[in-house]
Design a binder for these strands. Structure first.
Lengths: 177, 177
DNA sequence: GAAGATTGAGTGTTCAATCTTT
DNA sequence: AAAGATTGAACACTCAATCTTC
């Protein structure tokens, strides 16, 4: 029961093999992981986006809405959304404007610090977010269905290790149960 | 030697925990993997892009150049580049135009099938590609340095399993050694 | 002076429609 | 009729500069 599934090769194996041919001493593993990471992430995004298109919603809209949906009092600072979104501040401003147009969020100046903007989910936004949450979760489940629980758990743990190395540990365990 | 490193949490653990709070029976693992996958891929891209900026090269330029660099006779069909790039055909056309402007590739009509376009790397393009290959490989190595060899290998294998499920096995094992 | 959000310029992408070749 | 590449419109992002508030 040793090497159980090394026979099946993917497109990346082929690509990496060509690299080795030119630079035999190369660290092909990190290269393979780089390529696969990118490809998988891309496929996942496409999948979710496809489902969302049926509901006339963009992927980034779902991200913003869901972040607010999970927040305390359905409200978050613009800066929080910035850090959660992995995009630049200019993009956040544009997104919020669009979300506001659609009537899903409201922007208010933070009374205690007038530099900051507080973003609040409207009732319509709340309902939409709940609907989208189901759709997204369903898409994700389907996407990872080909992996068994053990592999998926392992993948989750390994990616966490990497993420902690990059971003550092969880920002604030305050209020942990 | 059971649970060796579950203590360190990442930002995604916090996000996922909020999901559980609302839907306890949720499949949080696939959700966690989804988020981490996206985040890690994003960080990696940023990292490589940052290095490339110093050489006045865009990430997509590197991708195209390297694909050609690894190809037989430094030449590939536009369709091959399309399938390798995970972007739409319109994007490929634009990219090729820019690459041609920079003097790194040449576009010729395929004599045997005049619908297709053959893309060939120029001498200047070849040299640039070689330079970029080193830079990118270096970035990737640094990025995954925090993971030990065992974990990295495991990650590579798990992602391959997923990729095979999505894209299918390697397109063409022809000429396998 | 630093932090936070906004603006505008420049760039690249997707999508649908079109054109050519088979 | 189908396959492949190109075009143009619409859209969202990044980056740098600006404005406000602390």
């Amino acid at each position: 029961m040793a090497h159980s599934t090394p026979p099946v090769r993917d497109a990346v194996d082929v690509m990496v093999e060509q690299w080795r041919r030119q630079q035999p001493e190369l660290d092909v593993v990190s290269k393979a992981v780089s390529i696969r990471l990118r490809r998988v992430a891309h496929h996942l995004e496409r999948e979710v986006r496809r489902e969302l298109a049926r509901l006339d919603v963009e992927l980034w809209e779902l991200d913003m809405l869901l972040a607010l949906h999970n927040a305390e009092g359905r409200r978050l600072g613009a800066g929080d959304l910035l850090r959660a979104s992995q995009v630049t501040s200019g993009a956040i401003t544009n997104r919020l404007a669009r979300l506001e147009q659609r009537g899903w969020v409201r922007r208010d100046v933070d009374p205690s610090d007038r530099r900051q903007v507080l973003v609040t989910l409207t009732d319509a936004g709340w309902d939409k977010a709940a609907e989208l949450a189901v759709t997204k979760t369903e898409s994700e489940r389907r996407f990872f269905a080909p992996m068994d629980a053990e592999m998926l758990g392992r993948l989750a743990a390994d990616l966490r290790t990497l993420l902690v190395a990059i971003e550092g540990p969880a920002p604030d365990p305050a209020g942990a149960d």
